[in-house]
Each structure stands twice: as structure tokens, then as C-alpha cells.
Design a protein around this nucleic acid. Structure first.
Lengths: 210, 210
DNA sequence: GCTTGACAGTAACAAAAGTTACACTTCAAC
DNA sequence: GTTGAAGTGTAACTTTTGTTACTGTCAAGC
């Protein structure tokens, strides 16, 4: 674990902190599609992402979802952070987008390190900043763009996260994450295909040029 | 200033911190409608809100706006926080919703106090939490609700912030903040009036029962 | 009183998105 | 091979929202 830790965090954390993380952190592996946090959960430890990606989702009153953003290698969950400190329930759902490796850190350390390590403080603040920025981008997408543009952004993002221009999703899954209906997604995807920007197949979408 | 400070913050900050704030903080008064921060500004100090309210707005490519949330007494601007530390430009616009009193704190202190005062740390984290929560609510509104419901929420919120059931806004102003058109707002307001929930007059909306 | 500009009401239409319904394909299980 | 479930394509329609255009009203300044 220490090797993996150092590889990802040695450029931002001082050695003493990395040692401490190694001592108290608990390694956790989650498979693609597995749930990491559910809405309403009390969160008692904070995840550091070593490998993979996690998608963060919001839910409406009818149980339908909306993709907020992805967490990647080196990220942490800002929501969790505040939930830990405030002892409040999770407002979001987190699901592994890929096979993912996490280090879980007990919240007591969180508070301790914030006073003790400057690099930790910076990391936490940068995480907040990144998350707020991503939330703003999400708001921009929903408020300022039409569904066809949102779909394109979604596909681009997915390609970036998975590092693969072949996206293995059904239209229904995409519809869930964009909070729209399957028919709308099929319609717009077909339009993109006829423009030669993607190639459609059962359970997969190949990105040609977006 | 110290009196005002103590009145608002003595229950969260230790005395030593309040003294420090009193020493380095600069009092700033802004009139209703006055701009506090513009998109693209570099922010070099962090505001603590003593009195009044500030609205935080996001802008699209066409220069049209969207209301994100309000800051009230005891709040601070999480965006500013991260901007200060990250030395990045402001992503948002801030305009005084009411006559407002602020204390501006130099960013160097920000970093210093985070290591020094536990109460400061808690305050900063709570601010982040509050802002993230408000961003989530904003996302919920835009993504999950129709314009008529968003309008109702807007009016309720406005009433709460100004502590006045008479709202002095034009339909055009409301349209800007909800990122829609004047005609749509007029239409929906008229519907609310015909349901007996509000009373419309030139430049004002009286909330009867929402 | 008259003019002017800001504000509001409303109709008619257009565009975007959501809904319903049904046909067709694929693929795995039997 | 048959069956059934999941996935996709598409038409027809509704709802919501945005747009254009025109009307009337109010209030300030002349």
C-alpha cells in the first residue's frame, strides 16, 4: 500500500504524513458498478482515491438520478469531508465507475492533520475548490445547454475518464445519468451518428470525432 | 466594529481570534445593488458578512445570469476562500442584495489561522459544507423542477432573505436570475395571482400564501 | 397636459424535451 | 429452435419553455 500511496501523493504530502496515512489508512477495493456511499449514509471515514474512478450522483424525489461529477486518482470526496466533520448524512450517492482502489482514513485524523500538516490543509482546500468548480460546471451544463450539447459533453467526459473511445453503456443508462428519457437519448445519439461523429452498436458507442 | 464582530461571531470564535480579526480586518459597506466581486477578478481578501445579504450569480456565454445562492449574516464566501488560496480568478459574480456590512480579511491570515485556531477551521469547513449544500439545492431546482416551481422557490427565498413579503422586483429582474425570459415569468406570475397566492403590482409582488 | 421609457399582459407561434406506443433485433436460457 | 428479456429505432403526440410581436399602463420630466 505504501508504494501505491507514495506514487500518488508523495509530490503533495510530506513523508511524515504519508507514513501516518500508511499507519491508519485502510485499503479498500471496489469493483466497477459497486456502491461506495448511499444517500442518507453516515460517513465515518474519508476516501483517498489511489486508482480508478468514482461517479457522484444526486437523486430526485422520484428516485431518478443525475450525474454530478467524477472523482479520479488523487482526488478525495469533498462531500464526505464535510459530512464527516458535520456528522451529517450523505447528500449524494457514489458508485465505482471503474475498478477502484481507495484508502479510507478515520475522521479523527482528518481534524488532527488539518492542524498539523500544511500540505494536508492545502490538499483539503484544493479538493474543495475542485469540487466546487465541478459543481459549477454541472450547473452550467444543466442551466445553459440543451440536451444535445449535454450529451456530447457526457460522452467526451466518459471517454476521458475511462481512457477509451468505446463507451459500453446502454441508452437507458445514459438517460439516467443525464436525468432524461431513453427515447430522447436514442434520438440524439442517432443524430450524432448520422453526422458521422459516433458509431452506434448494441451496448456500445464508439466515439469517432466529437 | 468589535461590538458588531462579537455580536455575530463570539459564539463560534475564541476571543483571541476575534481580537485578531478586529486588528487586521477592514470594514466595508456596500449598498444594495452594488457589485462586490466580478467574474475574472483576483480575490485577495476574504469577506465575513456582518449584516445584510449578498447574491452569488453565475454567467453563461451570452452574458446572461443565473442566481446560485445568497450569503447572509455570519456567512463567508467559499468561492473566495478557494480563489484566495489557489490564486485563481473568481468564477462568480457577487452583488449586494441588501445594504451590507463586511469585514475583509487578508488571505495570509486565512492560512495562518487555519493552523492556529480550531474554531476558525471549523468555521471554514462549515462554510464549505453550507455552500456545497446550497449548490446541490440549486442543481436540484434546475434539474428536477419546472419553471413554475422554481419561481415559487425563488419568491419564498427572496421573502426569507429580505424578511419582507413584499418583493420589489420587476419581472425582467426575476427572469435574469432564473435564466429565463420576462414573458415566461409574467405568465407564471399571473397564474400564481389567479390562484390567489400572490398579488401583482408594478415593480412589486406581494406574497399572500405560497 | 404631453411625451417618453420602463413595465406588464397576452396572443400566436416555434423549439426543445418528454411521453406513449409499437416494431424490430440481439442474445442468452431453456 | 423457441422464448423472453433487454436494447434500440422511430413515429406521433403532448407539455414545457422560449420567442416575437403588439397592446396598454404607469410615472417622471418637460
Amino acid at each position: 500500500m505504501l508504494d501505491n500511496l507514495k506514487e500518488n501523493f508523495s509530490h503533495i504530502f510530506e513523508d511524515a504524513l504519508i507514513d501516518e496515512i500508511g499507519q491508519v489508512g485502510v485499503l479498500k477495493e471496489v469493483k466497477e458498478g459497486e456502491k461506495v456511499i448511499e444517500i442518507g449514509d453516515y460517513v465515518r471515514s474519508m476516501p483517498l482515491l489511489l486508482k480508478g474512478a468514482i461517479k457522484i450522483l444526486r437523486e430526485d424525489d422520484d428516485g431518478d438520478e443525475l450525474l454530478l461529477y467524477f472523482l479520479e486518482r488523487g482526488d478525495t470526496c469533498a462531500m464526505t469531508l464535510t459530512c464527516c466533520l458535520g456528522q451529517t448524512k450523505s447528500e449524494i450517492r457514489a458508485i465505482a465507475e471503474l475498478d477502484t482502489t481507495l484508502i479510507m482514513i478515520p475522521i479523527q485524523k482528518m481534524e488532527e492533520w488539518t492542524g498539523k500538516y500544511k500540505s494536508w490543509r492545502n490538499f483539503v482546500f484544493q479538493s474543495y475548490h475542485a469540487r466546487l468548480t465541478e459543481m459549477l460546471e454541472t450547473i452550467d451544463s444543466i442551466a445553459f445547454y440543451n440536451m444535445d450539447e449535454r450529451l456530447v459533453k457526457y460522452l467526451q467526459n466518459k471517454k476521458k475518464i475511462t481512457n477509451d473511445s468505446l463507451i459500453n453503456s446502454t441508452h437507458q443508462e445514459i438517460a439516467y445519468e443525464l436525468h432524461t428519457s431513453r427515447v430522447v437519448v436514442s434520438r440524439l445519439l442517432k443524430k450524432l451518428e448520422s453526422m458521422g461523429k459516433i458509431e452506434l452498436n448494441r451496448n456500445s458507442i464508439k466515439i469517432i470525432a466529437l
